[in-house]
Every structure is written in structure tokens, then in C-alpha cells.
Design a protein around this nucleic acid. Sequence first.
DNA 1: TGAACAGTAATTGTATACAACTTTTGTACA
DNA 2: TGTACAAAAGTTGTATACAATTACTGTTCA
Lengths: 285, 285
Amino acid sequence: MKRANQERDDHNLSNLAANIAMGGKDGSSSLNSSRDRTNSPLNTHSSMTAAQSPTQPNPKPTEDVIYAELYNSILERRLPPETKLGENLLAEHYGVSRTIIRQVLQRLAHDRLVKLEPNRGAFVSSLSLEESKQIYEAWRLTEAAIVRDVTKTITRKQITALKKLVTEERQACEAQDIHRLTRLSAQFHMQLADLCQNKFLGRFLKELVPQTSLAFFYEVKSMPVCTKDEHSEILDYIASGNEEAAVAAAMRHLDGIEKALNARASLKKPTSLIDLLNARIPSIS
Amino acid sequence: MKRANQERDDHNLSNLAANIAMGGKDGSSSLNSSRDRTNSPLNTHSSMTAAQSPTQPNPKPTEDVIYAELYNSILERRLPPETKLGENLLAEHYGVSRTIIRQVLQRLAHDRLVKLEPNRGAFVSSLSLEESKQIYEAWRLTEAAIVRDVTKTITRKQITALKKLVTEERQACEAQDIHRLTRLSAQFHMQLADLCQNKFLGRFLKELVPQTSLAFFYEVKSMPVCTKDEHSEILDYIASGNEEAAVAAAMRHLDGIEKALNARASLKKPTSLIDLLNARIPSIS
DNA sequence: TGAACAGTAATTGTATACAACTTTTGTACA
DNA sequence: TGTACAAAAGTTGTATACAATTACTGTTCA
């Protein structure tokens, strides 16, 4: 009836993304597991260097783990907008029942990272250019309030943690690790939001930021704007208690990101299978 | 096996609230049904005058209907904070499986109107005074941006719809219908938020407003601040295109609500069964 | 050749059975 | 009388079976 423990599929992000991309017909994969039990999905090290501990017999992942993996996967743009997230495929991949997958998909739909179409299934959400603009407008409004708040209350320890994050960004940038950089860049703002005394504003921003990964245009291959230096600048102003300068720097930063987005908005959706196939041989055409 | 259609329990709000309050041991109830299929829960007429069409054989309610009923029920303060929402009780009350109830509870938890405690169940969320203050701060920030936006783009038809709402508020106020007034008052702000061009800001406010019903203090029996006139004032400024005056009026309005909340914050939680029993005979003590 | 239709396969929606956990209730003992 | 422990009742968590809907594929007919 059930699959034995030993022959259960492992689950890691790169394999999952590959499986989904090719329709899930390829079952074989390598052994890998990450068993973080943090509340916020962002703190899992899902996209760290691959080879970790192949010894673990790979117990059944919890709902939270699966949620975190998919969450990060979308945030890092590994699963592009409009990708179909079939329940059976995911259930078999993670070795859990569809019940769990369903709950995960509902949570992601709640985060607006996934859209559920009745009787048709779950898909990674997508954003139009207009919607993206609206996100950045809402982001600016909220970020300003948060930066103001945080500048007043931030502690040494918190500054150190954020500086560490910027350092990691720098490393990812040097290593040309686009996915990791994308995640770390979002994480900087989300971690800042966590420091805001006002829980509700913080939550709002933390919901907003990941959605910027859903723009259905956006050139994935080129390196995103290297935001590490701007993050560093904002952080310095915050640390020095210069509220207005910090806010101004943050606003410039967001404006810059949005400008870069607009610049890339020219190329349309390369999402269909045909487009993906064509994109494989760009030199021949 | 299954219960026959005819003897299936009906489901209406007042009976549900009563059932939950008394632990669900009382099964009998009257016949009533509302079958709206709107997307936003607020447009259902769940709390209108009771007697409608007792002829309907009462088909199985959809997930959306149950969601809307519970949503409104919490918003209107019929189900007070910390009320336990047992899955079996709800499933039997609505005549659906626990699967459906579970999904509804998850959606409500996503809205932060319900909190899910692992292995313990679902409860109506509650808010501390500090959290309430934070909500109002976030509300002010967002409301200002929304009022500014709406003032620029509002149409005649939309103004008429809002005026109708204010009229309904006035009626509810005269009729001393606290629950309905609470809902209509929230609806005014949520409908305004819907008119905002920026979807994300609008959504945020629509998530924020219902949560103000979760303050675990707050005197339910006394009439809430009659906000109808202030709503009318805000609306007039918006209609006349006076952006700054509209924003100022809205800010005064929110300040007033928060002040009233603080004033009522003295009486602590009367949630426990003992407290409720004691509250029944206040004249004797 | 192409469009429309029908049948089949696959996927999602719902209900139910069982397992795991928590809370309550009852009893024994200090 | 009160505390500690044990049993049982009730509730939630998960998996699975079946129903309903959709998507696909192959055939027929114009």
C-alpha cells in the first residue's frame, strides 16, 4: 500500500523545480534534507550549498517545511509565475498525502504567491506591470514608516544582524548566485520590518516584498540590481539615528528598484513550453 | 449513514452564536437561509431582519457561505474573542464535513480573525490594548493615502453608493441595532478602500478594519460611537474634491474612535463562564 | 484538411475512517 | 481534604477512498 520509508523520494528545491518544469515524469533524484523548524520561512537555508548530510534517512517533512520550501522557491524565482503546482506531483515528491499539500497551497494562496483556480488547480501567481507599480507605491509608504520607527528603537545586536545580512548579500553578488541574492535582498527588508514596533505594518511589508517576485516580465538571467551597497547606506543612517536621511535613502533605493523593473519590462512572458524550448538555443535563431 | 436532507440542521447566525455559547448541546433551531454568492463576505445580508423564506428546503451551504457567516459574526462581535470554534460543532451545525469547516477556519486564521492552536483547536482571536493602538496607527497611515487617492478618482455613482451606506448606518443607529451598526461602520471604510486604485493598500485596510472587533476589552452593550455623521462629513469633503480636508476629517474620525476605545479599556475580560454567569444578575450583587 | 463531438484519462473536491494528542474525569493514596 | 496518577472521552491531525469536474485524445463527418 504505502511506500516504504527507504524508497521514499527525497525533497530538495532544485530537484523539485526541475521536476515541475518537466512535468514530473522524472522520478529519480539525489538525497538531501533540511529540517529547520523556524516560524518564518525565510530563515531556512534551503538554497545553501547543496551537499550537506546524505546520511539522514529522510523522515517525512512537515507541512511547515514544505510551505517554507515552496515559499522560498517562488521568492527566489525558481518557480516562475504561472507554473502549475499539481497536487499529486507535490504529494508524491514530498511523500505526504494530498491533504498536506492542499493546506500548503492554501497558505501560499493566502500569501498571494499562489492562485487557486476552482477545479483547475494551483498556479504560481503573476503580476502585471501596473500591479507591480502599485506594490512599489504601497511599499514606499510602509517602508518610510518602518524606517522611521526602527531608527528610534534599533539596538546594537540588531544592527549587527543586519550587517551580517549585507555581508552575505555581497558574497552572493560576487558568486553570481542570483537566486540567493534575490532572497537575501528581500530578507533585508523583511528583517527590518520585523524590528518595527508596529506588528501590523511589519506584517504588511513582509507580505508585500515576496510578491515583487511575481512580476511576469523581468529578465531572470541578468543580474538584478546589486542592492547591497544601498542596503548598507540605509543601515548606516539608521544606526546613526538620522531618521530623515535613512528614510530618504530607503526611498531612493525603492525608486531605483522600480526603475530597473520598468527598464526590463520590455520583454514579455517567456513562460510557455515553446518559449522555454526556444530560449534553449538563442544563438541559432 | 448520512443525515437526510429534511432533518438537516438549518444554519443562521443567531442560532449559531447561541449554540456555541452554550457548548453546542442544544440541537433544535428554526429554519432560515441566506444564499448570497458574492465574493466579499460583507455584502451578505446575514444580519438583516430574521424571518425571510422558511419554505426553502435548505440545501447544503458552500464553503464561501459558511466563511461569510463566521466572518460577519466575528466582525459584528456576536462571537466574542477567545470563543472556541469546535470543528465538530460547526460541521454538524452546517451539515457539512469537517473538511469544509477546516478550510473555513484556515481562511479566517489567514484573516487573523481566528487563531489556530495546534492540537487544541480554533478560537476567535483577541487583541491587547497595545495591539489595538498599533492597528489604529497603521489604519491612519493607510486611510490617509486611500482618502487622497479616492478623492481624485471617485465617481458620482460611487458617491451615491456610499451615501446609501451612511443612511443605513443612521437607521441602524436609530434602531439601536448595535451589531448591524458595527458592521456597517466597518463596511464604510472597507468600501472606500475598494475604490482605491492601489489594490494592495485597499486590501491592507480591508484586512485591518475587521480586526478592530477583536479587542478583548470593549463594552459591547453600550452603543458604540455613532460614526454616521463623521462618515458623512468625510464623504462630503471627498465629493467636493477637497483632498486635505477629507484626510483631516478622516484622521479626526479615527482619533475619535481610538479615544473612545481607550476610555472603555478599563473593564477587563468578561469572557469566562463564571464572569458570564455573574453578569446575568448584576442587580443582585 | 479541419472542426465538432465523444470517450477516456487525469485532476481536483469532498467525505470519512483512523491515528495522535489533549483534556477531563475518576480513583487511590498521603 | 488535597494532590497525583490513570483511564476514558473528546478533539484535532492525517491519509485515503470516492465523486465531480476538467482536459485531453482520437474519431467521425462535413
